[in-house]
């Protein structure tokens, strides 16, 4: 009986493997399909306890718009699973307050912005420089501008 109860509890808590391999968009497609591309700075970051995993809400201020239109007063806010200390693998993790990122954004059905292709849509910028990191390691802001100029 006890074993059966424990098994039921474990089954309810079941989670699947977390090392997902995402479908990578080619760089030109990433630039083309993103409605907005911006350079932004992390303004605030708040961690909320979640059911199983904590969530982090990050607000950003837009520094420069490379593509599309975004209102200056429009709040740019994302809630992502996990925290910087305990990230959920393969999910976007925003750097700390004051750090800069390059964001590829699309509007979701609710009219709010979401990262294009998850982790691929968030390129951290090296502290103190404009060097793009993460899936943007082989690219640069200049390359994005070149790609945009092709249109």
């Amino acid at each position: 009986m006890m074993r059966a109860s424990l098994f039921t509890i474990l089954a309810l808590l079941m989670v699947m493997p977390a090392l997902s391999m995402i479908r990578t968009l080619p760089f030109p497609d990433l630039v083309k399909t993103s409605e907005v591309i911006v350079i932004a700075t992390v303004a605030t970051q708040e961690v909320q306890p979640g059911e199983k995993v904590a969530k982090t809400t990050t607000s950003l201020t837009v520094e420069k718009v490379l593509k599309g239109e975004i209102k200056a007063e429009e709040p740019l806010q994302f809630t992502t699973p996990g925290t910087r200390e305990k990230p959920v693998l393969d999910r976007p993790v925003f750097p700390a307050k004051g750090e800069r990122v390059l964001l590829f954004l699309v509007k979701n059905e609710e009219g709010t912005w979401r990262l294009q292709n998850g982790i691929q849509g968030l390129w951290p910028l090296e502290s103190g420089t404009d060097k793009t990191l993460g899936m943007g390691f082989n690219y640069s802001i200049d390359k994005i501008e070149e790609e945009l100029a092709k249109k």
């Binding site: 989670v15 305990k86 693998l89 750097p95």
Partner: peptide, 30 residues
């Protein structure tokens, strides 16, 4: 089967420009 999919036990760094996902998190996740 525990609920933790966060890859705990890891070596996350808080510095922009470094990997957000650490070595131990990858091992634990796998």
């Amino acid at each position: 089967n525990a609920e933790d999919v966060t890859g705990t036990g890891g070596q996350s760094t808080n510095v922009a420009g470094q990997s957000a996902t650490g070595v131990e998190e990858v091992i634990t996740g796998a």
